[in-house]
Simulated scan of single mutants.
Amino acid sequence: MSTMPQPLRVALALSAAGVPALPLRAGKVPFGNCRACKNGACGGRPNMKAAGPCQCPAPCHAWAAATTDPHVLTSPLWAPVWREAVAVAYHPGGAGLTVVDLDNAAAVAWARQTLPATRTVPTTRGEHWLYQGAMPSSNAVRPGVDIKSLMQYARWLGPGTGRMAVLPAAVRALTVKEDTNLAPGGLASSLPARATWSRQVATGCRHTERYVRTGLERGLALVRARTESGAGSQAFGVARFLAAQHTGCPGPCGLAVIGEEIVAAAVSVGVPETYARRAVANGLEAAVERAA
């Protein structure tokens, strides 16, 4: 035990906690595939995006090699790799976690203003924010921010501090954004003729109709102004803001009808309807979470 490499000790501790671990080589990247798996010759692992038959016992295929099995971690095939390893990574999605990777001070400041507080881990240039719950991974969801969860690895930098929060809708919404809106003329949408907000659909709202319509029209104008990019993210923000105005109402407040109007505004400037609906639904949900 005294000669066990330190990275292997860390990996075994992670595996005992149910966190799939893997070694990182110089450069803090995964080890390359073995000869049989090189250039995809093996067909890939069954749990990768392009599912294949490979079940190589060596640490091939990056994040897909991460494991909680101590017998695999200490196997003869992995022993030479641990002797060269300089760090340890883990598969957040495999542990039911999501890491919001904040790569600089500006990104950290944005997160502190926008996202629910959770467990944080200092990094060389910023912080990792850890949430309970897995989701699709996505890089560059905004300047200096990556989402690492399913089908990605994150470098292990320690357990961090603070209480871990449940993955919020605000984080999920970060991956529902388009770099450039589609051309509205070429957009295929199944949106039917929609109802508009009125007292008939909001019998339990404590606000006047003028108050609600004024706020909604301002929000719709913000979404429609995003003619080149960002309309999906704007729709999320408008839905979250408007829904938050009704958290003190006995209800119903007709939020579904408000949501349909926001979706229609986003679609009108080229946001795919599925993206628009997801962004608005996440925005409405985020307002409820913040009020809880």
Results as ranks from 00 to 15, higher is better:
residue 62 A to Y: 11
residue 62 A to N: 14
residue 63 W to L: 07
residue 63 W to C: 04
residue 64 A to H: 13
residue 64 A to F: 09
residue 64 A to D: 12
residue 65 A to K: 02
residue 66 A to H: 03
residue 66 A to I: 13
residue 66 A to N: 05
residue 67 T to C: 05
residue 68 T to M: 01
residue 68 T to E: 01
residue 69 D to Y: 05
residue 69 D to Q: 03
residue 69 D to N: 15
residue 70 P to H: 02
residue 70 P to D: 09
residue 71 H to T: 14
residue 71 H to I: 00
residue 71 H to D: 15
residue 72 V to M: 12
residue 73 L to G: 11
residue 73 L to Q: 12
residue 75 S to G: 09
residue 75 S to V: 06
residue 75 S to Y: 04
residue 76 P to E: 13
residue 76 P to W: 08
residue 76 P to D: 15
residue 77 L to A: 15
residue 78 W to T: 12
residue 79 A to G: 10
residue 80 P to L: 07
residue 80 P to T: 10
residue 80 P to N: 10
residue 81 V to G: 05
residue 81 V to L: 06
residue 81 V to H: 13
residue 81 V to Q: 07
residue 81 V to C: 09
residue 82 W to Q: 07
residue 82 W to H: 12
residue 82 W to C: 04
residue 82 W to P: 01
residue 83 R to A: 15
residue 83 R to S: 14
residue 84 E to L: 13
residue 85 A to K: 04
residue 86 V to E: 10
residue 86 V to G: 02
residue 87 A to N: 04
residue 89 A to D: 02
residue 89 A to L: 12
residue 90 Y to N: 00
residue 91 H to G: 00
residue 91 H to M: 07
residue 92 P to S: 03
residue 92 P to W: 09
residue 92 P to K: 01
residue 93 G to W: 09
residue 93 G to I: 07
residue 94 G to N: 08
residue 94 G to Y: 13
residue 95 A to M: 09
residue 95 A to D: 02
residue 95 A to Q: 00
residue 96 G to D: 12
residue 96 G to T: 10
residue 97 L to E: 14
residue 97 L to N: 09
residue 98 T to L: 01
residue 98 T to S: 09
